[in-house]
Amino acid sequence: MKQPAGVIVAGGLATRMGGGDKCLLPLGGAPMLERVIARLEPQVAELALNANGDSARFAGFGLPVVSDSVAGFAGPLAGVLAGLDWAASQGHESIVTAAGDTPFFPCDLVPRLLLAAEGMAHPLALACTPDGRQPTFGLWPVALRDDLRAALEGGLRKVVMWTDKHGGQMAEFDGAGEPFFNINTPEDLVKAEAMI
C-alpha cells in the first residue's frame, strides 16, 4: 500500500476554550499546530489542514487548508470527508488523520495504523488506548468517501458507528504518558505545558 497522506483535523468550534482555533494557541513557545505538524509530517506522503472559516490565518504554516463540505459543524467525520476529498484530488489512496489539539500523539502512529489494517480491501483503522478508541486518529480509505458523505448527509455523527459498519480495525497504543491527551480547556493547556 502507498504511503497515506496526512490531514490535521482542526475544524471544531473550541467552545470549552472560549472559541477560536485551539491549534494556534501557544504551547512551549510555539503554536500547538507547529508541534502537530512536526509529529505527523515525517510519517505521511503529503499534509493538509482541515479548518473552517478564513484560511489566511494559517498561511504561515505552508499547508493546503480544506474546509468541511457538510454544513453545520458536523464533527470530526466532516473533517475526515474533507480530507478524503482533498486526497482524492491529489491521487492518494488513503489518509491518516490527527487532531490539531493533541500535540503528543505517537511518532509511529502511521505505521501502526497501517499494520492494524493490513489485508483489508479498504484499509480502515482507529487508534485506541486502554481507555478506549481515539476516533480522531485513524487511517481512512479514499474509496469509501462517497459512503461517508452519504452517511453524514443522513445525519450520522458518531465516528465509531461508521467505522464499525466497515469493519474498522484497532491499532493499540499503550496509555503511558497519555499519548492522545487533548487540550480542551485552559486547565488542559497548563497541564500540557508541564508535559513538555
Rank of each mutant, 00 (worst) to 15 (best):
D54W: 07
L47A: 06
L63K: 08
G60V: 12
L27M: 08
R39I: 03
R57E: 12
A30N: 13
F61Q: 11
M32Y: 10
S55C: 12
A48M: 02
R35T: 00
A48V: 05
F61R: 10
L40H: 00
N52A: 10
V65F: 13
D54L: 08
G53M: 03
A51D: 12
V36C: 07
A30Q: 15
A38K: 11
A45P: 07
V36G: 02
A48L: 05
G28C: 09
P31W: 13
G28N: 08
L40E: 01
G53V: 06
M32C: 14
P64S: 14
G53W: 01
E46V: 02
A38I: 11
A56P: 03
F58D: 05
I37Y: 04
M32R: 11
L47P: 02
F58Q: 05
P31L: 14
A30L: 14
F58T: 06
L49E: 02
E46A: 04
S55N: 11
N52S: 11
A56D: 13
M32V: 08
R35D: 01
A56Y: 05
A30T: 14
A45C: 06
A56H: 09
E46W: 02
V44W: 01
L49I: 06
L27R: 07
G29S: 12
E34D: 15
S55P: 10
G60A: 15
I37R: 02
L27C: 09
L27W: 06
L47Y: 02
S55L: 13
Q43D: 00
D54C: 09
F58I: 09
N50V: 14
D54G: 10
N52W: 07
V66G: 03
L47D: 00
V66K: 00
G60P: 06
A45Y: 03
A59C: 12
V44T: 04
E41T: 00
M32P: 06
R57C: 11
V66P: 03
I37P: 02
S55I: 12
L63H: 08
N50E: 13
F61P: 03
D54F: 09
L49S: 01
G60Y: 11
V65N: 13
A45Q: 07
A51Y: 02
P42F: 03
A45F: 03
N50A: 14
G62I: 14
F61E: 09
G60K: 13
R35L: 00
V65M: 14
A48G: 06
P42Q: 09
A59K: 13
M32A: 12
A30E: 15
E46F: 00
L40Q: 01
E41N: 04
R39G: 04
G62C: 15
G29A: 13
A51M: 07
A38G: 12
I37K: 03
V66Q: 06
E34Q: 15
V65Y: 11
P31N: 14
L47I: 05
N52Y: 04
P31E: 14
P42R: 06
G28V: 07
S55M: 12
G29Q: 10
L33K: 10
I37C: 04
G29P: 09
R39N: 05
G29R: 09
R35C: 00
N52F: 04
G29L: 12
E34N: 15
L47T: 04
V36S: 06
M32K: 11
L33P: 02
